[in-house]
Simulated scan of single mutants.
Amino acid sequence: MPGTGSVRLLDDDVDFALAAYRRDGRWHLDDLAETALESVETLAGAVRRFDSGEGALGLVGVDEDFFVIVRVEGHTTRVLLSDVTAAEEWELAESAVDFLGLPDPVDDDDVGPAGDLAIVADLGMHAVDMAVLVDDVELYPDEMISDIAARLGFGADFDEATGLDAP
């Protein structure tokens, strides 16, 4: 958002940007274009094309700093931002805060998630488990999403796509 000091995402800032979706009972992953990462709305629009009726997820990790999960099911969009304070520096995170109708964070706000901790509860990861995971300051965003992906059933594919499986 102009004038707020937020940084627009560049290719170098994006650790991963993937769509995860189920089709014929199997998980699939596809890369998302950089143009989809301008805002929660553009991300949801890009992910919506993968929704086969079982919902689709947009998984984005930025600068080893935070992640955003966007889940679309039909016209419904749900969002989870791993660190609300990222909105002070990154447009995508600021867009998530705006989408959620939250006030802009201030310098003394604590690091913490914003949005729907139950975003994938029906798929196998409950809100309490999600809260514990995103509160672990020792983990990087890709490690957190890897854990989520493993619980949902596509962990090995996520790790391969992001290079986490490399020795």
Rank of each mutant, 00 (worst) to 15 (best):
3 G>C: 01
4 T>S: 07
6 S>Y: 01
6 S>E: 10
6 S>G: 04
7 V>H: 12
7 V>I: 12
7 V>F: 00
9 L>E: 01
11 D>F: 12
12 D>H: 14
13 D>F: 13
14 V>W: 08
15 D>Y: 02
16 F>P: 04
19 A>Y: 06
20 A>K: 06
24 D>I: 11
28 H>C: 11
30 D>R: 13
31 D>R: 14
32 L>M: 11
32 L>Q: 09
35 T>Y: 04
35 T>V: 08
36 A>K: 04
36 A>N: 08
37 L>V: 10
37 L>D: 03
39 S>A: 08
41 E>C: 02
42 T>I: 11
47 V>L: 14
50 F>S: 05
54 E>S: 11
56 A>C: 03
57 L>E: 02
57 L>Y: 09
57 L>N: 04
58 G>W: 07
58 G>R: 10
59 L>Q: 08
61 G>S: 13
63 D>T: 07
64 E>V: 10
65 D>K: 02
67 F>P: 03
73 E>H: 14
75 H>V: 15
77 T>H: 15
78 R>F: 13
80 L>V: 09
81 L>Y: 10
82 S>R: 10
83 D>P: 07
83 D>G: 05
88 E>M: 12
90 W>D: 03
92 L>I: 11
96 A>W: 06
97 V>F: 00
98 D>L: 11
98 D>A: 14
101 G>D: 03
101 G>R: 03
102 L>H: 05
102 L>F: 06
104 D>I: 00
105 P>C: 00
105 P>R: 00
105 P>M: 01
106 V>L: 08
108 D>R: 05
109 D>C: 00
111 V>G: 00
112 G>E: 08
112 G>R: 04
113 P>G: 01
116 D>W: 09
122 D>V: 09
123 L>G: 13
124 G>S: 15
124 G>F: 14
126 H>R: 15
133 L>S: 01
134 V>L: 00
135 D>L: 02
137 V>T: 12
138 E>V: 03
139 L>T: 03
140 Y>F: 08
140 Y>T: 08
140 Y>P: 00
140 Y>A: 06
143 E>T: 06
144 M>N: 05
145 I>S: 09
146 S>P: 05
146 S>T: 08
148 I>W: 07
148 I>N: 02
149 A>L: 10
151 R>I: 06
151 R>P: 03
151 R>C: 11
152 L>R: 05
152 L>C: 06
156 A>I: 12
156 A>D: 15
157 D>Q: 15
158 F>C: 05
158 F>Q: 02
158 F>I: 09
162 T>K: 10
162 T>H: 12
163 G>D: 13
166 A>E: 15
166 A>P: 04
